[in-house]
Amino acid sequence: MSALADLHDGDHRLARHVASWRSDCARRVLPAVSEAAEHTKLWWGAALTMAAVGGWRGRRAAAAGVVSMAVAEVVSNCVIKQLWQRRRPPKEWFPNEEVHDRPDSSSFPSGHTAAAVGFTAAVAPVWPAAGAVCAVPAVMVAAERVHTGAHYPSDVVAGTAIGLAVAALVHRAPRLVARRLL
C-alpha cells in the first residue's frame, strides 16, 4: 500500500474514532464551542476584551489576531476550498445530531480551525498569557470540527497550517514592508 493510501486510511480511522467519543463533557462543551466559533464570534469577543482591558498590548494583540483571523479565513474559504473540492465525512460515521448541521462547502481545509489558530498564533507573541487562554478554545474548535463530522482530521491539520502561516506573515509583514521602503 502506498504512503498516500496509508494516510488516507489513517485519516478515516481517526475521524471515526473521534466521532465515537461518548464523553458527556464532549457532548456538552463542543457544541457550545462550535456555536461560539460560528462567524468568528468567539474571536471577535476575545479581541474586544483584549482591546478593552489589555492597554496597548491588548490592542496590539487584538489587531494582530483579527487581521490574521480574517486573512486565514479568506485563504482557506475563498481560495483553497474553491481549488480543492472534498466531500465531508459520511454522516453514517457520526452518531451525534450535529452531523446534520454541517456546511455544504468543501471539507478541505477547515476554515474554523484556520481562523482559530490564526487568531491565537497572532495573539501569542504579542501577549503570551492571552495567547495561552485563546489556545484552549482553539484546540476545542479543531476537535469539534472532527467530532461533529464537519471535517476529516487532515482538514483540521491543513487549517492549522494555514492559521500558523498567516499569523507568521502578519507578524513579519510590517518589517518586510519597512525594509522595502527604506
Rank of each mutant, 00 (worst) to 15 (best):
Y152R: 03
D104G: 14
Y152C: 12
Q82L: 11
A116I: 01
V156W: 04
S154E: 08
T120K: 02
P125D: 07
E92I: 03
H147T: 01
G118N: 00
V99K: 06
C78D: 15
D104E: 15
P137G: 08
L83I: 05
R172A: 15
W93G: 07
S106M: 00
A143Q: 09
G111K: 07
R87L: 14
W84Y: 12
C134I: 05
N77S: 15
R87Y: 10
L164R: 01
T160M: 02
V117S: 02
A150W: 04
V166I: 14
A143V: 14
T113K: 05
F108L: 09
A168V: 13
G111S: 15
A138Y: 04
D155I: 08
A165L: 11
A150Q: 05
H151E: 12
D101L: 15
S76E: 04
K81Y: 04
I162T: 04
N77W: 00
E98C: 08
H171T: 08
G111N: 05
A122K: 02
W127Y: 10
V123C: 10
P174L: 10
A124C: 12
G149D: 05
P174H: 11
R145N: 10
S76L: 06
T148S: 15
H100K: 12
P109S: 09
N96R: 10
H100R: 14
A130R: 02
N96Q: 14
Q82K: 06
A173R: 12
I162W: 01
A138W: 01
A121K: 02
Y152V: 05
H147K: 07
W127N: 02
H171L: 14
A124N: 07
G131L: 11
K81T: 03
S107H: 02
A132M: 13
W127F: 14
A122H: 12
P90R: 04
F94K: 03
A168F: 11
F108D: 00
G149I: 08
F119Q: 03
R87Q: 13
A142R: 04
I162P: 10
D104H: 14
E92D: 09
P109E: 04
V79N: 00
P125R: 02
V166M: 08
A130P: 07
P95M: 00
C134F: 06
V170K: 09
V136P: 02
A130Y: 10
A143C: 14
A130W: 13
E144A: 15
E144K: 04
P125T: 06
M140W: 09
P174K: 08
A142C: 03
E97S: 12
A165E: 02
V99Q: 08
A143F: 14
G111E: 07
A165C: 11
L83T: 05
A114S: 05
R145P: 09
F94L: 08
V117W: 08
Y152M: 03
V117L: 02
W93F: 10
A130V: 02
T160K: 00
H147C: 03
A114H: 07
G159S: 07
R172M: 13
S106E: 11
N96L: 10
A132K: 06
Q82R: 13
W84M: 11
E97W: 08
F94C: 00
V133A: 15
